[in-house]
Simulated assay, not measured.
Amino acid sequence: MYREIKCKNCRKVLFHEMQCKHLFINAHHVPLTRSSDGCATTEQNNLFLNEEYLPDWITIRIETEKWSKGRLNCPYCDSRVGGFDFVSGAKCTCSIYVLPSIHIIKSKVDLMKEY
């Protein structure tokens, strides 16, 4: 699991340790732990977020777009860090599960892992 997640552009913390424990899920909607099983190729590039534990800055952005489709930008520097799509319902690579609607792009953030 992660200690914190920072924007790669401005290096400010987007998610802290307490949020990381409940916020992230895998492509099969299972809480993310060290032993979680999901679709490795889908999860290789994205972190999926649990809709029940969203930080305020993400909730505001989703509500602004009326729970449809859009980008998630860093609340500090406005660079893109992820997105959301409540319209399409894309399936993961195993073709069994529908992907979670909200994701963070791993290449756009710094993942500070637990030791």
Rank of each mutant, 00 (worst) to 15 (best):
K8G: 08
N9T: 09
N9V: 04
N9I: 02
C10N: 08
C10T: 07
R11E: 03
R11Q: 08
R11D: 01
K12N: 09
K12M: 05
K12D: 03
V13I: 15
V13S: 12
L14E: 04
L14D: 04
L14Y: 05
H16D: 15
H16Y: 14
H16C: 13
H16R: 13
E17L: 14
E17G: 12
E17V: 11
M18I: 13
C20N: 10
C20I: 03
K21D: 12
K21V: 12
L23A: 09
L23P: 04
I25A: 04
I25M: 10
I25Y: 05
N26Q: 13
N26I: 11
A27F: 06
A27H: 04
H28D: 08
H29Y: 14
H29M: 11
P31A: 04
P31S: 08
L32Q: 05
L32I: 04
L32T: 03
T33A: 13
T33I: 10
T33Y: 11
R34Q: 10
R34L: 10
S35G: 09
S35L: 14
S36G: 07
T41Y: 06
T41V: 13
T41D: 11
T42G: 03
T42Y: 00
T42D: 09
T42E: 05
T42I: 02
E43M: 11
E43I: 03
Q44W: 15
N45C: 13
N46H: 02
L47R: 00
L47D: 00
L47Y: 02
L47N: 00
F48H: 00
L49K: 00
N50L: 04
N50S: 07
N50T: 05
E51D: 07
Y53G: 00
L54D: 06
P55I: 09
P55G: 10
P55Q: 10
I58K: 01
T59A: 09
I60K: 12
I60S: 09
R61T: 14
R61E: 14
I62R: 03
E63Q: 15
E63K: 15
E65C: 14
E65N: 14
W67E: 12
S68I: 04
G70C: 12
G70D: 10
G70N: 11
R71C: 10
R71W: 11
L72H: 02
N73Q: 07
C74D: 02
C74P: 01
P75W: 02
P75R: 03
P75F: 04
P75D: 06
P75L: 05
P75C: 04
Y76D: 01
Y76I: 02
C77I: 03
D78I: 05
S79P: 01
S79V: 00
S79N: 04
S79E: 03
S79D: 01
R80D: 15
R80Y: 14
G82C: 08
G82R: 01
G82K: 01
G83W: 06
G83C: 07
G83V: 06
D85L: 06
D85F: 07
D85H: 07
F86E: 09
F86I: 08
V87S: 05
V87D: 06
S88D: 13
G89E: 15
A90M: 11
A90H: 10
A90S: 10
A90E: 12
